[in-house]
Each structure stands twice: as structure tokens, then as C-alpha cells.
Amino acid sequence: MMTAQPQQPDLARELIARAQTSATHRAQRVRNQLDAVQLGQSRHADHANTKVLRRILAEHDWPGHRLVGPVAARAAWSIALHSDDEPDFQRAATTLLQRAVHAGDALIQHWAHLHDRALITSGHEQEYGTQLLLRADGIELCPLRAPESLDERRGSVGLPPIAVALNTVRRRYTSVPHVESTLADALPEAA
């Protein structure tokens, strides 16, 4: 993958700013620090981000490392990951991200996370165990296909074994007041 200057630095800055703002809101939401108005604003921002990413995908295909650089490519992935209100868009973004992975312009781990998220938001079982729920009694995996071969699938896309990923998430969230939430909302790369 290329790490030279992105072809579209203005687009990169926009993606990064949008993703950072949304990540801050999600972290506050997981910690139950948003009032009803702020929660609505956060959801509106996610919807606006989806609209912007939809436009970018239509104009440029997936905004990968060459177009926007690795940090902004991660930001685009985060925006797509949190486009839960538009599952058709999320599935389409997954397809475009997969093409970028095959072209050496995006990370396969990002594709695995987005693929799992699109499956879960569409009511299917995930493949790679990247989508978790934070509940009052602990952390649990969202529904999962063929759990007996999970670590093999995770390894095929460069993800650590599920036990390692779950321990990392548990350590990060032991000090967080427990609220029911999708952990991927706050920390999608933990799994």
C-alpha cells in the first residue's frame, strides 16, 4: 500500500474530521454521557456522514490509501461501519472496500469488520467475530456463524484469536459504567 501524499488532501481532511467527531460522540454514548438532545445530534451526524460518504463513493469509488491516505481511509471505513441505519449502503460500501483490498489500496481487517457489521445489521450471523455487545453482565459476541472455525477465519484476515481480542476489549472497558451498547460503536478495532 502506498503511503505517499494523498491525491485528495481536502477530501482526506473532511473524512478525518467527520470520523473524529463521530468517534467522540460514540465514546460518550458508551459511557452514557449524552443527554437526549446530544444523542439525537450524534445520530444526525452519523446520518450526515453516511450521506457524504455515499457521495464520495459515487465520485471516487472507495477512498483508499492512494486517494486519501491511510488515516482518512480508516476514517471512511469508520463512517461506513456506523451507517447502520442504511444497511443497503453498508453492504455496497463493503463491496467497494473489498475491491480496494484486492487492489492493495485498503486493509483487509477493515473489510472484515465492515463485512461483519453489514451482516449483523442485515440480521445475519457475522463471520469474523468483530461485532460485540457490552451488557451489564459483560461482553458477548453478536451472533456468529460456525464458531468452531472462528480463529481460522480471523487468522485469514490478519485478526488475532478471539480470546486475545476479547481480553483486550475487557481490559479497555472494565472502568466504563456498563450500558448496553454495541462495542464496535466505540472501539471497532478492538475485536
Rank of each mutant, 00 (worst) to 15 (best):
E180H: 11
K51L: 15
N167Y: 01
V68H: 01
A103W: 02
R55Y: 04
D116C: 11
R117P: 06
V68R: 02
R171W: 08
E140Y: 04
A118N: 04
G123S: 07
A163C: 04
R54P: 00
A163S: 12
P177W: 08
D137H: 12
A103I: 03
I139K: 01
Q126N: 12
R117K: 11
V169H: 03
A92V: 06
V68S: 02
H124W: 00
L166E: 01
I162T: 06
H110Q: 15
P143W: 05
A103Y: 03
D151M: 06
K51D: 14
Q131V: 15
Q126K: 10
L144Q: 11
A58D: 14
L114T: 09
I79K: 05
P143N: 10
D137R: 13
A118S: 15
E59C: 02
E86L: 07
D116S: 07
V164Q: 14
I139D: 02
I162C: 10
Q131I: 15
P87K: 03
A73S: 15
E86P: 00
P160T: 10
E127Q: 14
P143V: 01
R153I: 09
A106N: 01
L150R: 05
H60I: 04
E152F: 04
H124F: 10
W111G: 02
I139A: 00
H110M: 06
